[in-house]
Design a protein around this nucleic acid. Structure first.
Length: 112
DNA sequence: ACCATGACGTTTC
DNA sequence: CGAAACGCCATGG
């Protein structure tokens, strides 16, 4: 049984993403302590289907705000639809005002 | 134990 | 500004 592994951390952070906000793989990886572990975040999302909870992976995009993982949703376009449903504008698979909807765990979750 | 892959990121040419 | 290469860490075979 795995609980405190890298994956679970990613799941937690992704589930903590507020409605109408998005984050990037690198941001999560950085929050986990691994700067270059962005790939692992994506890998974790790949196993998100294994998670007992629903992982809003559609709120996780790459640093460019591009919906790179939309293909893994089963049907491309679903990811964009979900994001648009939350008030996020997307054009050409790219998030508009990505800087405004960007939610950084290391910045938001990090209390000071 | 080693090699290959992966929904990325940063740096360099 | 655009494309390519390297780096990064973890999982799977």
């Amino acid at each position: 049984m795995d609980n405190d592994n890298f994956f679970n951390k990613v799941y937690q952070v992704v589930e903590l993403i507020p409605h109408g906000r998005v984050t990037s793989y690198g941001a999560i990886a950085n929050y986990l302590g691994s700067r270059g572990a962005a790939r692992m975040v994506g890998w974790a999302m790949n196993g998100s289907h294994h998670s007992p909870n629903q992982i809003p992976a559609h709120r996780v995009v790459n640093s460019k705000g591009l919906l790179t993982g939309k293909i893994h949703f089963g049907d491309p376009g679903l990811m964009q639809k979900l994001l648009e449903n939350e008030g996020i504008e997307i054009v050409n698979d790219q998030i508009i005002r990505f800087n405004e909807v960007f939610w950084d765990p290391t910045k938001e979750l990090n209390e000071f």
